[in-house]
Amino acid sequence: MTDGPAKMLLTATGLTKRFQIGSGSLFRPPRQVHAVDGVSLSLAAGETLGIVGESGCGKSTLSRLLMRLIEPTSGTISFRGEDLTRLSPAELRGVRRHMQIVFQDPFGSLNPRMTVRQIVDEPLRVHGQGSRADRDARIVEALQVVGLGAHVLDRHPHEFSGGQRQRIGIARAMVLNPALLVGDEPVSALDVSVRAQILNLLRRIQSETGVGLVIVSHDLGAIRYICHRVAVMYLGRVVEEGPVEQIFRDPQHPYTRTLISAVPVPRVTGRGPRLAVQGEIPSPLAPPPGCHFHTRCPFAMPVCRQIAPALAEIARGRRSACHLHTQPGAAPIPPSPRTGPAGPSTRA
């Protein structure tokens, strides 16, 4: 993590999103889905932040909020020091060329009626970037960066494999040379070998361009491989955040420990004790009071049922939202596993 806010590319503060379900009635107000609940995080230029958690925890909603593809209920999003929540649609359009997103489904996110040339050219045309000749040169350059070339320009998405389609999506996002790239489950629809290729591609692009990456994924191995820091979400809240290797080697929140312990490994020799998650994740329509995780936590205390713990710094660069760190006499969680889920390799 960088030292000061001046170096931060993206900062979210108190970000909250509620989705209304139905119109309600005279005697019953409309129900609301608590998708994202007071999330605060930051990203420096050239850094990769991973966002992980169970399905339904709010990861994808958070990624769209950061891009302001959906409007937050409350909170602020600062990009390069500018509050995106205060921008008009016209002002936001000028900022969008510096912020791009790669979606989960590499086929559904590409227009099947358009050629590769048209797909990659579209953001350049929308933002009025250069003449046709200039745009053609940038299109070819973007395709070469992702391992394709000019020979694919006149082909359509259905003529490519899933990995190649995702490369086209990345080329479309990177053709504008953005400062921020958000990947919403960018490799989850791909097989293992292609997944590794795309992860390596993203790492190479970042090392060459300095783009800031936000990667949303349920694949802990991929997150450990590509990210510098990781934020762990549970039912709309960030419960732990810090450097990726520290989180995986010594998780400090019970939910993070159970999440890592649940990953199947070929050998269990040398691993610490596993923590069992009790029950099912509660409904975001009616999240539990206090700490959202207390209904499933093996270390829940009375205070957990009443007061939501703040996401507080527990060590330099590490934050956790758990009363175990603040309540006197609280029993510590067991020693951490000696190994965690690994991707193709781990960062040095």
Rank of each mutant, 00 (worst) to 15 (best):
G270N: 04
S345K: 09
L153D: 07
S60M: 00
K7Q: 15
S78I: 06
S42V: 09
S40M: 10
G75D: 10
S345C: 04
F79I: 06
I170E: 04
H98Y: 12
E71L: 08
E313C: 09
R135F: 01
A179Y: 12
L180Q: 02
S74Q: 12
V244R: 10
G162Q: 12
P341Q: 04
R117C: 12
L92R: 08
S161G: 09
H151G: 03
P72N: 02
S283W: 10
P186G: 05
G270H: 06
G329R: 07
P344T: 11
P157D: 00
G38Q: 08
L199P: 03
I281N: 14
Q246H: 11
Q118S: 13
T326A: 13
R80K: 15
R237T: 12
G242Y: 04
S25C: 06
R172K: 13
D134C: 07
R172A: 12
Q32W: 14
S336L: 02
H325N: 00
S60L: 05
P89L: 05
G50K: 05
T76K: 15
M99H: 11
H323A: 04
A137R: 13
A231H: 03
A173E: 10
R138W: 04
I281S: 15
L213S: 07
I223K: 07
D121F: 01
L9S: 03
C227Y: 01
T339L: 10
R195F: 00
G340S: 05
M301W: 08
P284S: 06
V102D: 08
L153N: 10
K7L: 11
A286V: 09
A315N: 11
Y225L: 03
P186R: 01
T61L: 01
D219F: 01
T2S: 15
R117M: 11
P254H: 00
V36N: 07
P334Q: 03
P30R: 08
F103A: 11
P284D: 06
R195G: 09
E54Y: 00
R135Y: 03
V152A: 03
A321D: 05
V36H: 06
A137F: 05
V238L: 10
I170Q: 01
V230S: 12
R31L: 08
S88W: 14
Q246Y: 03
I70P: 07
R274W: 10
R132E: 14
H294V: 10
L92T: 09
S261N: 14
Q166G: 00
Q32A: 13
A315T: 01
C57F: 06
R204C: 12
R125H: 07
L10Y: 10
T16R: 14
S74V: 03
C297D: 02
A171F: 06
V265K: 15
R347T: 11
H98T: 09
G130W: 08
A133H: 13
Q252T: 03
H127R: 13
L87H: 12
I51F: 10
D219C: 03
P332G: 01
V238K: 01
E240Y: 04
E245Y: 02
A90R: 15
R257P: 06
E241V: 00
H34N: 12
A44S: 15
G147T: 04
C227R: 02
V102C: 09
R249D: 14
R195S: 09
P112T: 00
Y225R: 05
L87F: 13
N177P: 01
L66H: 11
R338C: 13
G75R: 02
V146P: 01
P243C: 10
V192N: 10
